[in-house]
Every structure is written in C-alpha cells, then in structure tokens.
Design a protein around this nucleic acid. Structure first.
Lengths: 333, 333
DNA sequence: GTAGAAATAGTTAGCGCTAACAATTGCGAT
DNA sequence: ATCGCAATTGTTAGCGCTAACTATTTCTAC
C-alpha cells in the first residue's frame, strides 16, 4: 500500500480511502491511485485489514462430513447466499453427530477469524449432554434440540413428514410403515414423529418401522426387514414413508425383488426430492425441501446479528414448509 | 494475550511460546500459562498471527456452483484431507464454466488471506481465451486444458471412459452410442474422447451421440433422442456409454418407457458409481472414481509447494485410474 | 566457589492496515 | 484581496501477534 502511495505521490491513507470507496477523494486522485494499483498489481492484505477493523467479511459454516443430499444441498445454498452478500465462507465439518463434536467445531471456527458462525450440521437426538460453547461471535443454528433457545431456521421436518404420511392416508392406506434415518439424528426422530402424529390424528395404528442410515443400501436392507415381517405375518402394510429419497430408491428395488408391485401393492413416498427421484421406476412421490430459502433466511438472520451487534437476538424459529410432490410410487389402495 | 500474561505474571512472549508449543518454556510456567488461558477463555487472534507470520493455515478451494455428484464429492474429499493436515478451507465457487470465471475466482481467493489455492472447478473445453491470473500463492489445478503447464492430479477421464467402452465392446457390442455431458466441459469432451478412442482401437464405427447436462432429466431426454434415431432408422445401437450415472438413470427410464429392455436389448454403462447406482432397476454398471485419492494427492502436492516454497514445482501430471464396476445394466449382445 | 554454557524469560520492533485527528487546499462570498 | 467553510489529503497511533534480539536464571564442570 505504501508502494502504491509512493508510486503516485499520495499518502497511504488516500490509497486506503480509494480502496474502501470513501467518497472524500477527488476524481483525479482516485484515477491516479487506481492506475497505480493496477500497474503494481497491488492486492489488499486481508489479515491486516481484519486486524485493524476487527471484521473479516468471513462466515464460518459448520457442516457434516458426508456426501448426503441434504447437507451438501444446504451447504451449496448457504455458500451462494453468502457470496451474494459479499461474505467469504470458511468451511469446517464434524465427523460425528454429537453435541461434543459440534461444540468443538464451533470453537475451531471461532478462532478462524470469522464474523459469525452458521451451524448446518445435523444435530444429535441425544439430549443428555447439553451443547456448551463460548461464542465470541454470533452463532446461528439450522436445527436445535428441544429446550435449546438458539435462533433457528429450518424445514419443518415434523410437518413435512406429516404431509407425506397424510398423502398416503388420503389414498386410503390404513397400514403405513416407516423406514427411518439413524435414531441418533434429530432429523430422523422428527420425521418419524411427523409420521406418528399423522397416523394418530387419523386414528390409524403405527405400521412396522425399520431403521436405515440414509444410503440406498440401507434403504434396501430396511425394506427387506419390513418384507420379512410381512411374510412372517408379524406386521402388514400397504404403504411406506421413507425418511429420504436415497433410501426410498433402495426400498423400491427390495420391493421389486420380492415381487411386490409399487404402487400396485405397496405405495412408497420419500423425502428430499433429489434429482434422481423423478426418474426411478416407478418415479418417486416425495416431499421437496426448499434449501435455498432456508439458506437465504439463515444468512439474513446471522448477518443481521453480525452487522447490528446490539440488536435483539431473534429466538423465534422460522420454519419453512415442505412441498408434496406426487409421482408414480403412491396410489389408492 | 497481554491479559493472560499479566494474569500469571509472565511476558506476553512467554504466552505466545506456550501457545505455539515452543520447547524453551519450563513445565511450571507452561502449566501456569495454560491455566490462565483456560480461566480467561483466551483465544488467539488469527488475523494478528497471520499478519505477523505471513501464513494463515488456510487454503482456498475454488469449486463449482452445483449439487452435482462429482464436484460435491471432490470438495468433500479435499475438505477432509485439509483438516487432517491442519488447514482451514475457504470456499469459493464459480457459477459458470469458463477461463474468465476461474481467473476471477482465483483472484477473489488470493485476496482472502490463503496460503495456497486448489482449483477443483471443472474446466471449460473452450481453449480460445487462455487462463491468465497472477498468483501470489501456489495454485494447483485438478484439471488443465491442453497446453497448460500447471500441475495436475485427476482421474484419467479418457482412460476411464475407454475402460467403460471396452467393457461394452468385450461383451460383443458392435454399435455403441454415447450420451455426453455438456460440450462446454472439458471433462465431457475427454470422456467422449475415450469412448471414441476405444471404438477406433477396436475398429468399430461411432454410434449416435446425444448431449445432456449431467442431470437425470437431461439423460432421459438424450436417451429419447437416441431412441428416435433408432426408430427412424438413422442410427442403430445395442449399447450406450453415458457420461455420468445421474444421466444414465434417466436414460434407463427412457429405454424402459420405449419398451427397450436393459440389458436385454440395450446395454447401458454409466460413470461415477454414485450411491444410487447399485439400486436402480436394473442396477447400473459404471466406472468408479476415487475422489479421496485425488483429493489427498492434490493436497499433498499443494502443501508441498506451500511449505517448501523454493522447491521445484511439480508439473508432471498424476492420473488416477478409474475402476470398472459391472452390474446388471450391461450384458452380452 | 566460580566460570561458562545452556535453558528460560523479557524487550523491542514491525507485520499492513484503518480510525481519529490534524493539516492543507480550493472556492465562493464579502 | 481576504475570510470562512467545505472538500480533500496527510499524520499518528495502534489492532494482536511473532521474530530477533537481549537479559536473566539455572545447571554443570572444574
């Protein structure tokens, strides 16, 4: 910066003013400085700026170590939203779904010179050890455990699961099973909850449940378990709500291999509306999650706290509704 | 840091030494300082450290704006590898596949206080405008255009595509079509190239080609085009090499709707080995890409340049082979 | 007991930038 | 021509840290 200043005979402060768009610089000087910057290929040192201002124009995002559809789609939305708002993104991810891992991840990010932290990593259903961390910057969660009072913006998982289940019920299904995500995930728990609620509201019994790990392979295995229960007479069902599309795709194959026609004998509905879901055979009915809206809202709220530090922290939760997408895999009984 | 020093009656430099693991501190002093740090909840200011040392322990990753399997899997691998090596990751992504966008992305990252930059964004097949940027830090590419002399580590796209095509040829297919990725992607071009090479080596003619955009929807549409050509007698084929699994899934549906049995009448092979591919009906033969190896190798080379700045820049390209995964969608003629 | 080396701790300067204030310039009104 | 005010530009200090040096203590060998 001093080089640039020397090169065109002004003070370093004037250069700083030009770079930061300060209006109190004459057009002539500005042009001169700009030319010198260009000529010398000068680039601002962000560390020094951060040290002087205490702001880094960088947000930390704590995500989850996986290539699952949900987390990656969420990350992508956030990143685009952050860039639109002029913020950089530092990425960190947890390997494990637990409060301890999340607290560690937040701490790691908070030493990373960020102005705020967004936690989009899935939360654990284990609420025995509370999440404790000492935030130096605003922290915003996409998902919170019951009883936590952090601000949240998320898809309304429970309501969306109820929507899917109600769709099955409206088609006349009296016996609906569920293939859930891992019990350790809060999201899995909430989707299972929504399924249970919808059945209870309709006065219907809960069908058989099997647990998967979100992968197609696990959905395939879980569906086989359900089929086994059916064959053994332990439990019957004519419809299944699967907690994500990837597992639903695996389940479709398991049903097909068992000679059960979908939707003829079994209706299947998934969750996510992944790109593939419209092209399976049969194509998959599902619930679409609008990650872009959630990402934009999360960022909006976090930046509000970052940019107006004094203002009240929003604790009201904003829940975005899921959207039912009906395709071929569900039909009347 | 001065607070911590005052709190336990040492100099700030001693605190700095403790934090940075300098051995010239007595065990007693170290314990005292550590206790004070803990008590005061002190956290190091990364910006100040970066300013003083000129190093940030942060790498910039330039990715591509999408939720496509390849880019997200690659990003994930890199991020894990970087964390293992003690580096933070700043994420930036291009919206468009072009040299101009990549150069802009690199420049944006290079002002972001990073020690090195990894470009995993797909490259354009348009080589008319060369990629120009002024690196202040080491930059490593996953993919380079012909004639560029930057270091590269990548899956050997051409060889992997040849592998897939040779598999079809070895099953006796004399007429193999191709559903390609967007012509603007270098990767798509190279996969198409591999397909062409394999056919040429076997002395077979090139079957019909249709272009997609990597999505299942586009694969479905492209397959319909091929089917149309078949019906009109314009071109016949008994096998198709599809440039990624997502499009292949769409193609499977298109063939099924047209009453063409896979693999009975048409063999289909994809590329990627996405999680879903083992559970489609029929399950998809494909070529697996080992992103973890590529990610780890990329990081290795970049960090070598970052940490030993004087050393020779590796320009030799390391190409990782794809692995053939044979499932149900391919069979003998 | 003492010299001398080794281990440990403290002091000073400066990384590149911005905030706050001080100094200069330009320009219209008198 | 002179004044006063606004528009510009310059000066100084300091953000929190580490590098390089200097000072002190501790230990060993004689």
């Amino acid at each position: 910066m001093f080089d640039v200043a020397a090169h065109c005979g002004v003070s370093h402060q004037t250069v700083s003013r030009v770079i930061n768009g300060n209006p109190n610089v004459s057009a002539k000087t500005r042009a001169k400085v700009l030319a010198a910057i260009d000529e010398l290929g000068y680039q601002q040192n962000l560390s020094a700026k951060a040290l002087a201002t205490g702001r880094t124009q960088t947000l930390g995002v704590l995500s989850f170590d996986s290539t699952l559809y949900g987390p990656t789609a969420m990350l992508h939305s956030i990143q685009v939203a952050a860039r639109d708002r002029g913020y950089r993104v530092v990425l960190n991810s947890v390997e494990e779904i637990s409060n301890r891992a999340i607290a560690e991840g937040i701490n790691a990010l908070s030493t990373s010179a960020v102005d705020g932290i967004l936690v989009i990593a899935p939360r654990s259903s284990d609420e025995s050890e509370p999440l404790v961390f000492t935030p130096r910057v605003p922290v915003l969660f996409r998902e919170v455990q019951n009883g936590e009072s952090f601000a949240v913006v998320d898809i309304d998982q429970r309501a969306a699961a109820r929507l899917a289940t109600s769709h099955l019920i409206s088609l006349g299904h009296k016996n609906t099973g569920h293939i859930s995500g891992p019990a350790s995930w809060l999201t899995a728990e909430r989707r299972a909850d929504g399924w249970r609620q919808a059945l209870a509201e309709a006065g219907l019994p809960e069908g058989p449940v099997a647990e998967g790990d979100w992968t197609p392979a696990s959905g395939y295995a879980a569906a086989k378990q359900l089929i086994q229960k059916r064959l053994s007479g332990e439990a019957d069902f004519t419809a299944v709500f699967v907690a994500n599309d990837a597992m639903a795709l695996g389940a479709l194959r398991a049903f097909s291999e068992a000679g059960l026609r979908v939707p003829g004998q079994i209706s299947v509905i998934g969750f996510d509306d992944a790109a593939e879901s419209g092209y399976s055979m049969p194509s998959l009915s599902t619930v679409r999650q609008d990650f872009d809206t959630v990402g934009a809202d999360l960022l909006e709220i976090l930046l509000h706290q970052v940019e107006q530090p004094g203002s009240a922290v929003l604790t009201a939760s904003m829940l975005v509704a899921g959207e039912l997408v009906v395709r071929e895999s569900t039909s009347r009984v």
